[in-house]
Each structure stands twice: as structure tokens, then as C-alpha cells.
């Protein structure tokens, strides 16, 4: 019982990047425990997925050929049966929206301790030491798991994606899926980021966050964008509040943007937001909090009140 089982993530015919990151995280753990790294890919074109997942460090890929798209009941049943077969010491899943839709159920069913959204994992003797954030990224904590087995979800883009071609054996796993226990069905998908403006096309984005405080203060941001010839985008809370439409949202659940210049105003830089804009050429942050996570990726920063700085900046361009 020293093996590691990692569950690949795919959607609408494509493996997601985190699948290859799971290979890296899983290989590190298997090296520490002296076990094998097993991967499982469930539903969809599993044989084609398995070929792609056969990267350096993978020992076995288990394919579960059942259905096309993600269904958490199918995943839960298949993974529980795979765990029975493989007896992994560590079960790894992505901390994705779909990962979070089955990993807690699997952990509950197998009575495994669960630690989610990890950014680093180490094995120290019989203990798994996981690093994860709390309080919206303000602190990093270490959590120790002392049980014999554990289920862990990993945050995307924290491990490098595995490369190369591996020598894995690919095995079809004949999971017994109880269809009566499937209580939900996917009826479709919808892209939500359509509409008047594609923030993905903008060269310069003036992006606004919670620091703007009130809806009427958005006028200031529009004025700045006009003065700079820029497009207005935002972080999640502004869209949640209904102050800007969904197609303006930058981040994990919104759009990924890579403009020449990204000006973050009153945005703290939660990981979900940063995932959507860290590829920008030049990042400017205006925020009162010098410790805000956005400062970690900013090229230029002003640690001051946006209500003082933004009017002055508008003045510079008029």
C-alpha cells in the first residue's frame, strides 16, 4: 500500500492542464513512498486520453470507458472500485470544479481523511505534510495527515506539467456502474462570456475590484479607461454584485487575458483572479494594502488609496 492513484481531469473532449500536473505531484509522492504511480481516466475517449497521459513517471493508466462527459456518480463509483483494486496510499484529484464534485464523496465513502487545495506536498516518514492557504491566501498553513491513507486535491498551476513519453501499461478497468445510483444528468453546456466586448482582445485593461466599494464609484474607472483608450474589466465581486456583466470578469471562472498592460485597481489578487491575468506583459497594481497578493506579480505598484491616485492619473492623460 505505497502506491499513488491520480485522477485525470478532462472536459468536452480535452484533457485539462492539471492532469499533467497531477502526474508530477503524484510521481513525487510515489518516489517518497517507494510505490507506483497509477493514473485513472474516466469517461470520454479514454484510449486517446491514456496515450496522452503516458508521460514520464507514469507506471499504469487505468481507463474506465463509460459515458462521454463528467458525471460525479460515475466517477465516485469508478474511483471507489479502483481504490479497492489499487489500494493506493494517496488518492490525488484536481481541486477543479469537477474534482470538488466527486473527491469529497469518494473520501467519505472510503473513510479517508481529505485535504483540499494543496499547493505543496511532502512525505515525512509516515506523515503526509500538505501546504495550503487560509483566509483567502493571507496565510499559508501546514497540515499533517497521520493516517495510513489520504485523499488530496491539488491546486492547478502549482506543479509543473509532466513532459516526455512514459512507459506506462494501459489497462482497461471494468468498473461496475450502478445506473440506479446516478441521480444527476448533464443536459448541456453554455459559454457565458459572450456579449458586446471581448476583454481577451484588449491591449490595455483597466481592471477594478472590491476596493471600489460602491457601484457609483465605477464612473471613475470608466473615466480612466476612456483617458487611456483602455477596456474595463473586473474581478469576481464586481460581477457578483451585478455592477458589470459576466463578460468583463477576469479569472478562473471568467476569462483568461494577456494584454500588453493590465492595471489592477483595488484588486487584492486572489488566486482565482491571478490565474486569469498573470500572463499580461506589464502588470500595474494600485492598492492600499502593500501585502496584497497582487503585489507578488505586479511590475509596478502604488500602495495608496485608489480614490486619490486614479483622479490624479486621469489628470495626467487629459
Amino acid at each position: 500500500m505505497t502506491d499513488v492513484l491520480a485522477i485525470a481531469d478532462h472536459r468536452r473532449g480535452e484533457l485539462r492542464d492539471v492532469s499533467y500536473e497531477l502526474v508530477s505531484a503524484g510521481r513525487d509522492l510515489a518516489d517518497a513512498t517507494g510505490g507506483d504511480l497509477h493514473l485513472a481516466v474516466i469517461s470520454g475517449t479514454v484510449d486517446a486520453f491514456a496515450e496522452k497521459l503516458n508521460r514520464e513517471g507514469v507506471d499504469v493508466v487505468h481507463t474506465v470507458d463509460y459515458g462521454e462527459e463528467f458525471n460525479h456518480d460515475v466517477y465516485t463509483q469508478a474511483i471507489v472500485q479502483l481504490c479497492d483494486e489499487v489500494s493506493p496510499q494517496f488518492l490525488l484529484a484536481p481541486n477543479s470544479v469537477n474534482g470538488l464534485d466527486y473527491a469529497p464523496a469518494v473520501a467519505n465513502r472510503l473513510d479517508l481523511p481529505l485535504v483540499t487545495d494543496t499547493v505543496d506536498l511532502e512525505v515525512d516518514g509516515d506523515t503526509l505534510v500538505a501546504t495550503r492557504e487560509m483566509y483567502g491566501g493571507k496565510v499559508e498553513t501546514t497540515v499533517e495527515l497521520t493516517g495510513e491513507r489520504a485523499a488530496v486535491t491539488i491546486r492547478g498551476a502549482e506543479w509543473p506539467g509532466a513532459s516526455g513519453t512514459g512507459e506506462a501499461t494501459i489497462e482497461a478497468f471494468d468498473a461496475t456502474i450502478d445506473e440506479d445510483a446516478i441521480g444527476s444528468s448533464v443536459t448541456g453546456f453554455e459559454e457565458v462570456a459572450g456579449g458586446d466586448v471581448d476583454i481577451g482582445d484588449a491591449d490595455v485593461l483597466v481592471s477594478v475590484g472590491r476596493g471600489i466599494e460602491e457601484e457609483e464609484n465605477l464612473e471613475l474607472i470608466h473615466e480612466l479607461a476612456d483617458a487611456l483608450g483602455a477596456t474595463v474589466s473586473s474581478s469576481r465581486p464586481i460581477v457578483d454584485a451585478g455592477w458589470l456583466p459576466k463578460n468583463r470578469q477576469v479569472g478562473q471562472s471568467g476569462k483568461v487575458v494577456t494584454p500588453d498592460v493590465y492595471i489592477a485597481i483595488g484588486i487584492s489578487g486572489a488566486v482565482q483572479h491571478v490565474a486569469g491575468m498573470k500572463g499580461s506583459d506589464t502588470i500595474v497594481a494600485i492598492n492600499t494594502d502593500p501585502n496584497a497578493p497582487i503585489m507578488d506579480i505586479a511590475d509596478y505598484a502604488i500602495h495608496d488609496d485608489l480614490f486619490d491616485v486614479v483622479p490624479a492619473l486621469i489628470g495626467e492623460f487629459q
Binding site: 481523511p113 496565510v139 501546514t142 495527515l145 505586479a298 500602495h303
Partner: peptide, 18 residues
């Protein structure tokens, strides 16, 4: 089986021109 054993402020990786 979970124990919280450490808490720290993540080291700032900021190399921004302030």
C-alpha cells in the same frame, strides 16, 4: 487524522517597482 501544525505569512515574491 488531520492536524494543523504550522502557519506563516507567504514570503512576498514581489519585485515590483513601487
Amino acid at each position: 487524522d488531520l492536524r494543523l501544525t504550522g502557519m506563516s505569512v507567504p514570503e512576498s515574491e514581489s519585485d515590483a517597482t513601487v
